[in-house]
Design a protein around this nucleic acid. Structure first.
Length: 423
DNA sequence: TCTGGGGTCCTAGGACCC
DNA sequence: TCTGGGGTCCTAGGACCC
C-alpha cells in the first residue's frame, strides 16, 4: 500500500498575512520587503503582474513602486510566525500526520483516507483554513512529495483547479508534468535547470523519463531520488517530528556600514543572545562557535571578510559565556579601517543539553548558570523579549547596527499594546 | 547611496592510518 | 628505475530549499 501525500502551500504568504489585518490591501499590488527594507520577499498577484521579481532590491524598483501605487510593507516576522501556527493548527484538525515543512508549507499524510474523494477533502481543508485564518492556500495531492509539490504549483496557477489538484489516478498526470518547466520541479534549481535544458530536458515529463545514469552522474543520488519521485516511487517520507537542529545561525546586515569595534561588539552580543535563546529552546548546547563579519559583498574595493571558530571547552548555552567567546573571536579578526556591512554568529556541534560532560578543569558553575538562563527566558517570555538582557547588548534604543523597518505593520497578534482598535 | 536570513544534504579530495 | 591498497574521517564547496 503506497502513501498519499498532500502539500498545502500558503499563497503569497507574507502579503496574505498583511492583508488579514489590513483588508484595504486586498486586490491591490502589495510587496513585503526583507530586513532593512532591502529586497522583495513576497508579492501579491497584482505585484507579480507588474513584473516585480522575487528578490529584487527595493532601490531598483523604487520608482515603479511609487508610480504604480504598490503598497510596500516591511517584514513582520512575529506576525507571520503567529499566523503560520494558526494555519498549521487548523491543518492538524484534519489529520494528525502533519509535517511543517516551512513557515508557509506543510505536507500531510492522507493515506488513511482511502481514495474516495480526496479532492473534496482538499477543498474542505482549503475553505476551512481560509475561514479560520484568512490565509488562502493551494493544495496538491499525489503519491510522492515531489508530485504533490508539483500539483500544488499547478493548482495555484490554474483557474479551473480552484486551488486544489489531485494527481492520483489522474489521466491528466502526464500532461501536468509536460506543462511544468523543469526549473519548477522541487530539487531543480538554477544550475541544474540550465544543465538540463542544455541537454534538451525542458519539462518535468522529460526529466521523469531521463536516463538514470545521466541523472546520477550530474545530479548525484538526490537527483536520482527526485526522478524516481516523479515516477511515483516515494523516496521521501513524512517527518512529523522535526529532527534536531545541527546548527544555529544569527546574522544581520547593517543598513549603514559600521566601523568601530565597540559597535560590532554590541551587535554581536545581541546576535549571541538570540542564538543562545534558540539553543536553549532546542534544549541543546553548542560545542563550537563561529563569529564572522564582512564588508559590503557587492563592492569590489575595501573588501574584507573573515571568520573565527572557537571550540568550546565544555558545550554550553549560557549567554554570557558565549558572548565572551564571541567577543574574543571578534577581536581576533577585527581590522580597523573597514566599513562593515554584516556580522553574525554560528553555533555548531550541538548536543542535547542533558549530555553535557564537563571536563576536569571546568571552572563554570553549570547548575547556577542553567538556573539563571531559565529565569531569564521565563521573564522574557512573560514580559516580552528584551525585558531582561545583558549590558553588553547595549542600552541605546536606536544603535547604528539595528535593522531598519520603516513600514512595519503593528504586531497585531503578539503584542497587547498593538491590538487593532475598533472605532 | 541603496542589495535578507537561515537552513540541509552530497561530493570530492586531502589527511591519516594500517 | 622501481614506489600498494584500502578504509575512515574531515572539510570546503556546491547544490538545493524556504
Amino acid at each position: 500500500m503506497s502513501g498519499i501525500f498532500a502539500l498545502v502551500d500558503c499563497n503569497n504568504f507574507y502579503v496574505s498575512c498583511e492583508r488579514v489585518f489590513d483588508p484595504k490591501l486586498v486586490g491591490q499590488p502589495v510587496v513585503v520587503l526583507s530586513n532593512n527594507d532591502g529586497c522583495v520577499v513576497s508579492r501579491s498577484n497584482e505585484a507579480k503582474e507588474l513584473g516585480i521579481k522575487m528578490g529584487v532590491p527595493e532601490f531598483e524598483i523604487h520608482e515603479l513602486l511609487q508610480d504604480r501605487g504598490v503598497h510596500v510593507c516591511s517584514s513582520n516576522y512575529a506576525l507571520y510566525g503567529d499566523m503560520s501556527r494558526r494555519v498549521m493548527a487548523t491543518l492538524s484538525d484534519f489529520t494528525p500526520d502533519v509535517e511543517i515543512y516551512s513557515i508557509d508549507e506543510a505536507f500531510l499524510n492522507l493515506s488513511g483516507f482511502g481514495r474516495s474523494d480526496l479532492s473534496g477533502y482538499g477543498r474542505r481543508m482549503k475553505a476551512t483554513v481560509e475561514q479560520w485564518t484568512g490565509i488562502p492556500v493551494s493544495i496538491g495531492i499525489a503519491r510522492t512529495k515531489t508530485l504533490a509539490k508539483l500539483a500544488a504549483h499547478i493548482a495555484k496557477g490554474s483557474e479551473k483547479a480552484e486551488g486544489v489538484l489531485n494527481l492520483i489516478e489522474s489521466l491528466y498526470q502526464d500532461r501536468a508534468l509536460e506543462h511544468t518547466e523543469v526549473g519548477e520541479v522541487w530539487g531543480v534549481g538554477r544550475n541544474y535547470a540550465r544543465l538540463l535544458r542544455e541537454r534538451g530536458i525542458q519539462n518535468a515529463l522529460q526529466l521523469r523519463d531521463a536516463d538514470d545514469f545521466f541523472v546520477k552522474k550530474h545530479m548525484g543520488v538526490s537527483g536520482l531520488k527526485m526522478v524516481r519521485e516523479l515516477r511515483g516511487i516515494s523516496c521521501y517520507s513524512l517527518e512529523s517530528a522535526p529532527p534536531p537542529k545541527k546548527g544555529i545561525t544569527v546574522s544581520r546586515s547593517f543598513k549603514t556600514a559600521i566601523e568601530t569595534l565597540e559597535q560590532l561588539e554590541e551587535a554581536v552580543a545581541n546576535y549571541v543572545s538570540v542564538a543562545a535563546g534558540k539553543l536553549r529552546k532546542e534544549r541543546a548546547a553548542a560545542g563550537a562557535l563561529t563569529l564572522f563579519l564582512r564588508t559590503n559583498r557587492f563592492k569590489k574595493t575595501g573588501v574584507y571578510a573573515n571568520s573565527h571558530t572557537t571550540d568550546l571547552p565544555v558545550p554550553t548555552s549560557d549567554t554570557s559565556e558565549l558572548i565572551r567567546y564571541a567577543h574574543e573571536g571578534l577581536r581576533k579578526i577585527y581590522r580597523e579601517g573597514f566599513r562593515y556591512k554584516k556580522a553574525g554568529v554560528m553555533m555548531h556541534d550541538l548536543i542535547p543539553e542533558n549530555r553535557i560532560q564537563s571536563d576536569l578543569f571546568d571552572r563554570v558553575d553549570r547548575t547556577r548558570s542553567g538556573k539563571l538562563m531559565r529565569t531569564l527566558d521565563d521573564i522574557n517570555a512573560a514580559m516580552g523579549p528584551g525585558t531582561l538582557k545583558y549590558a553588553a547588548t547595549g542600552v541605546d534604543p536606536n544603535p547604528r547596527w539595528k535593522t531598519v523597518a520603516e513600514k512595519r505593520s503593528p504586531s497585531y497578534t503578539t503584542n497587547w499594546g498593538q491590538l487593532p482598535e475598533v472605532s
